[in-house]
Computed example of a mutant assay.
Amino acid sequence: MLGELQELFREFEDDDDVRVVVLRSEGPVFSSGHDLNEMIDRDAEAYTAVFALCTEVMEAIRLLPKPVIAQVQGLATAAGCQLVATCDLAVAAESAAFATPGVQIGLFCTTPGVALARSVATTKKAMEMLLTGTPVSASEALEIGLINRVVPDGELDANVAALARQIASASAQTLAVGKPAFYRQIELDRPAAYDMAQKVMVDNLLKEDAYEGITAFLHKRDPEWKY
């Protein structure tokens, strides 16, 4: 599964027809994380390969110049919760839940904690989830910043589709500038972030779709994006 996801993200990056990616699943579970059968009676090399591939997939989501939305209809646990935290946006059904329960089986969710700590509002809440493994409801996940929206179960598909269409209506060129810059600047101190951001803004202004978008606004017409 991880290998297939990695390959798909490679394809999406080069496919101009793909403007927004939605990660969804079917059934009562969005993702239960790693197959525990792969986490027992293996050597360090095998374990390293699994976690390395997982990290590559998570980074592929962050580095993809196209927005990725997690559509969560059920339980997202361990690396499944990591997946939600890694996506650019996340919309969950009211019945969804989120947990990092590895501590309960003797395997602390250290790699999921990387994305979790960078997604939720406070380190204390991230630590609570990691130390207890207690599931967090969709409403609480919204409150702590793990997800963007909570919608009734029956409206999840339509809500995510509408959000994806809204994002896809923007210039793909502009999104490809903005998403990577956002993730770069949040890792910098404020002066360095502003220094980087202003350079990105200049580069953005020199691109075709910025010229088209500003011209269309000034002339009170809809833009016709080149990208």
Rank of each mutant, 00 (worst) to 15 (best):
L2M: 09
L2F: 05
Q6M: 08
R10W: 04
R10T: 14
E11L: 14
F12A: 06
D15C: 06
V18I: 13
V20T: 06
V20G: 02
G27V: 05
P28R: 02
S32I: 10
D35P: 03
D35S: 13
L36Q: 04
L36T: 08
N37S: 05
E38K: 10
I40S: 11
R42Y: 07
A46E: 04
T48D: 11
A49P: 02
V50K: 02
F51S: 15
L53F: 01
V57W: 00
V57K: 00
V57M: 03
M58Q: 15
I61G: 02
L64N: 10
L64G: 09
P65T: 11
Q73L: 07
G74E: 01
C81D: 01
T86G: 08
C87Q: 03
C87L: 07
D88Y: 02
L89Y: 08
V91C: 03
A93V: 04
S95P: 10
A96V: 03
A96N: 05
P101I: 14
P112Q: 12
A115R: 02
A115P: 00
A117K: 06
S119V: 08
A121V: 14
T122K: 10
T123C: 05
M129Q: 02
M129E: 04
L130G: 02
G133V: 07
A138N: 08
S139E: 13
S139K: 09
E140A: 10
R149K: 14
V150K: 03
V150G: 05
G154T: 12
L156A: 08
D157P: 04
D157M: 13
A158M: 14
R165Y: 05
A168S: 14
S171Q: 12
G178H: 02
A181D: 00
Q185H: 03
D189V: 08
A192P: 06
A193N: 04
V200M: 12
M201C: 15
A210K: 11
Y211V: 14
G213P: 11
I214W: 13
F217I: 10
L218F: 07
K220V: 05
